[in-house]
């Protein structure tokens, strides 16, 4: 090792990323306010944002923790109704709009996280198929509760006249904050604890990791952001009906995560964007949407079972570092001989 690998220091990385986020916000705002886009396109952008948060948050439990829950739409519903009811009742009050937006979304997240803990504690004692079935049941229970608590939720006809507060700016900031917060948690001792459970539960526990705590924590964190996405959805639709949170919604989100690559945030973002945009892009083929979905899924699962991105996560800083060091390959790739030796024997 004569040459040292040039690295971009942390503060500069953060600066680069902040600049990128600001630039995207500016560009997005400019495009939307310029009137180039039609109504369908600008509302699609909001929908994409909401699904990005849903996919990225589900990825915490499926990708990072390694469990398979089927009730993500349930948490979304809890957040949506919490936020919808709050915004409706705050509409007449003196509360300034930005404050109402923030409080509504945070409340949505907290409420969903509480449900996450309530369902997580019993569900996470179970594994695999059992966890899937319990969470599936939970999603349905939430939907039926919403139908029956019609005094609060508006029942089957729905919760109407919710102020449409999910502007591009609000959704964009929520997406950015959610992704950054999840990223920051995952790159910490808490995130590593979650990953260690996915990798090997027994080893994790013998390293002093409190398995149950971190499972429930991951579940609650995932529910929190699903709740925020639900809140945004309420302010985007202006109308909430229980049928918007059925089993198929949970499956759609799961499809995004699996397609993008379990454990890859970039994968979730890309898959959520592509799959949400697909119907509009293929408007004429809309009836075949589900067929295309399924065919796409089958093809990807056959040729790339780990999803589009695998567990790879895109990082602009790493890309820049690679460019800086173009003449010096990074010395972290394990020697091929090492792999051969490792194959000789197994535990």
């Amino acid at each position: 090792m004569n040459h040292t690998y040039k690295k971009i220091p942390m503060p500069i990385r953060y600066l680069i990323n902040t600049a990128l986020i600001a630039l995207l916000l500016y560009a997005g705002n400019a495009v939307i306010s310029s009137g180039i886009t039609n109504r369908a396109q600008s509302s699609l952008v909001l929908q994409v944002g909401i699904y990005i948060i849903l996919a990225v948050s589900l990825n915490i439990v499926t990708g990072y923790l390694g469990q398979l829950p089927l009730g993500h739409a349930g948490f979304m519903a809890v957040g949506a109704y919490t936020c919808g009811i709050f915004w409706k009742s705050a509409a007449g009050s003196a509360l300034p709009a930005p404050a109402a937006i923030v409080i509504g979304l945070v409340l949505a997240g907290i409420m969903a996280a509480i449900f996450g803990v309530i369902i997580g504690v019993p569900a996470l004692r179970l594994k695999g198929d059992y966890l899937a079935i319990i969470t599936l049941g939970f999603g349905e229970i939430i939907r039926i509760l919403i139908i029956n608590l019609s005094g609060i939720t508006g029942g089957t006809p729905g919760l109407m006249n919710i102020p449409k507060r999910s502007s591009f700016l609000v959704v964009y900031l929520a997406v950015a904050i959610s992704c950054i917060a999840i990223h920051m948690v995952m790159k910490s001792r808490h995130g590593r604890a979650i990953l260690s459970i996915r990798e090997n539960e027994i080893a994790a526990e013998s390293c002093g990791i409190h398995i149950t705590y971190y499972k429930v924590f991951a579940f609650a964190l995932s529910a929190f952001f699903a709740g925020i996405a639900g809140g945004l959805y309420a302010g985007y639709q202006g109308l909430l009906t229980p049928s918007g949170f059925d089993f198929m919604t949970s499956i759609n989100i799961l499809v995004m995560v699996v397609l993008g690559g379990m454990g890859s945030m970039a994968g979730s973002v890309i898959a959520a964007t592509v799959l949400t945009s697909l119907p509009l892009a293929l408007q004429s083929l809309n009836t075949f949407r589900m067929v295309i979905y399924s065919v796409l899924l089958v093809i990807i699962m056959i040729f790339k079972p780990s999803g589009l991105m695998g567990t790879y996560d895109f990082s602009l800083s790493h890309l820049l570092e690679k460019l800086l060091n173009i003449r010096q390959p990074r010395e972290n790739s394990p020697a091929q001989t090492a792999d051969k030796k490792a194959g000789k024997r197994n535990g």
Binding site: R189, G191, L195, S196, N200, G208, G347
Partner: peptide
């Protein structure tokens, strides 16, 4: 052997150091 195979060598050791660290979720966000 029960390693955290998909994680790096350093991350494996850092998971062992989990309880030696004390910072909260808020600290990390």
């Amino acid at each position: 052997i029960r390693l955290f195979k998909a994680l790096t060598v350093e991350e494996n050791v850092q998971i062992g150091l989990h309880n030696a660290m004390r910072y909260s979720v808020g600290d990390s966000i």
